[in-house]
């Protein structure tokens, strides 16, 4: 198999199957990642909030949840979402795509809650003391002083979580839900051109994540310069 043959095959695959890669694959990958990070951020914020609860039991449950999610493989969680979740709540009639989404969101929320927690913790404690010494209560201090500064730490980290998710969603191809890695499986199945399909998908992943990382880095620098 010569280099020229490979190149020719790639061009041929792109001509025949571009929509499978670029339309189905890329859009499902991005869709899955966006949904995951969006709802993961909401759920993760709630978890981070709950971790500051007055009630020890709430904090305990959340800590246990986060540790379990971070301590087990995401693929296992996807299996759980795909096979067990629809069985546990048959009434909802969850589609494969929804089940996988739920599993990914839950996974992401655990990581996001840590991102938020450490973003808040990174704000100098002197800021809180200064605010409290002026008479602001704990809530006003959090909303007006700590969170606006923590956002500068949290947003770039959330962006990186999004980039991570773009790669992690490839695991959803195990269940054939139609993202980029599923495109690879489909095209490979139809053409037997394994290497060429892999190269195409790999390049697409790389272009997306590399570009996004650069965008995030620029964004982060802008935000720091804003001070």
């Amino acid at each position: 198999m010569s280099f020229t043959t490979i190149c020719e095959n790639i061009v041929m695959l792109l001509r025949e199957y571009w929509h499978v890669f670029l339309i189905e694959g890329v859009s499902y990958t991005l869709l899955l990642s966006v949904i995951t990070v969006f709802f993961g951020a909401i759920l993760g914020s709630l978890l981070a909030l709950g971790k500051r609860s007055r009630f020890r039991i709430v904090r305990g449950i959340i800590t246990a949840f986060v540790e379990v999610i971070r301590g087990t493989p995401i693929l296992l969680q996807l299996y759980f979402g795909y096979f067990i979740l629809p069985m546990m709540v048959p009434a909802l009639n969850l589609s494969a795509f929804t089940s996988i989404c739920i599993a990914l969101v839950i996974n992401s929320s655990a990581y996001v809650s840590e991102v938020i927690r450490s973003g808040i913790q990174a704000v100098d404690h002197g800021q809180t003391e200064a605010a409290r010494s002026l008479g602001l209560n704990a809530r006003q201090t959090m909303l007006r002083i700590v969170l606006p500064q923590a956002v500068k730490n949290i947003l770039p980290a959330l962006g990186n979580e999004f980039v991570m998710m773009i790669k992690e969603t490839s695991l959803a191809s195990t269940f054939f839900v139609g993202e980029l890695m599923t495109s690879y499986l489909k095209v490979k199945g139809a053409t037997w051109l394994n290497l060429e399909s892999l190269i195409i998908v790999g390049v697409i992943y790389f272009v997306i994540t590399f570009t996004l990382s650069k965008v995030i880095a620029v964004f982060e620098r802008r935000m720091r310069a804003g001070e």
Binding site: D124, G126, Q127, E129, A130, A131, R132, S133, L134, G135, L136, N137, I145, P148, Q149, K152, E227
Partner: peptide, 20 residues
Amino acid sequence: VNLHRQKMGMVFQLFNVFPH
């Protein structure tokens, strides 16, 4: 105590101005 703190100003060694 928040009400009483309003009447007690405090200045810190490391300033703690709000950077945002």
